[in-house]
Amino acid sequence: MYYFDPHIHMVSRTTDDYEMLAKMGCVGLSEPAFWAGFDRGSVDGFRDYFCQLTEFEPNRAGWYGIAHYTWLCINAKEAENVELSREVIAMIPEFLDRPGVLGIGEIGLNKNTKNEATIFLEHLDLAARTDEQILIHTPHLEDKYQGTRMILDMLCDDARLNRSRVCVDHVEEHTVRHVLEEGFWAGMTLYPVSKCTPERAVDIVERYGPERLLVNSAGDWGPSKPTAVPDFILAMRLRGHPESLIRRVVYENPLAFFGQSRNFHFAPPDEKNVPGQ
């Protein structure tokens, strides 16, 4: 089955992973800007990172027939440095018209601090002014509930935002209802220990239906599995769900969400010309 991974950090993965994803049916992915495991010291560090996301990674993905898209921001963890964050936010528009740039993300909160909330609001303002879509990171573990509720408060307080163009990611059992009820898209991240397992993600689909739900691996430099979406596909099949429902969640939903971005251009693999013809 063809699928999209709507949230995966390929800068942290090897080229072999691209090949494996392609073999598993991945035809497209989106890569949000994130914390690379260390704090970057200057705005130029982010400029180089954004070049990697918009130049090198699409090339590398293309070697295996995978369409690569990206989101740009300074992540919540580095947002504690407000001065640097403002420099990065001012620089982001240089990249917004590049092919494959879907919007602003993954912005959000990490420890739910004042500085993080301040920079989150400034990212929202940038997205509203430039009419960009938004991808949102929610905090980990015990901070997730409070952070998700704070994020929803800030989103709902900004009347300029179109809720159908915002995805709140890393939802779990205690946060998904709040996100969907407010009219946003919700992303489920499949991680080996924290966040969701494939089986729990299937439970969430069964409880809430497939509307505005995405599933991703968030594969990165830490313990994570880049082929977690195929694990979800298998878990859905073993639970007895029809192929049409599975395809809706892993393929049609990402296309519907991404399709709202002006830089999203995608040729479905079953409509492409066969090479050599």
């Binding site: 015990e142 901070d143 509930y145 409070q146 408060d153």
Partner: peptide, 17 residues
């Protein structure tokens, strides 16, 4: 699962602003 998630979560502070 939802109840257990909430047990392991910090409570929502409605006055966070």
């Amino acid at each position: 699962a939802e109840q257990i998630q909430l047990i392991f979560s910090r409570p929502y502070d409605e006055q966070w602003i």
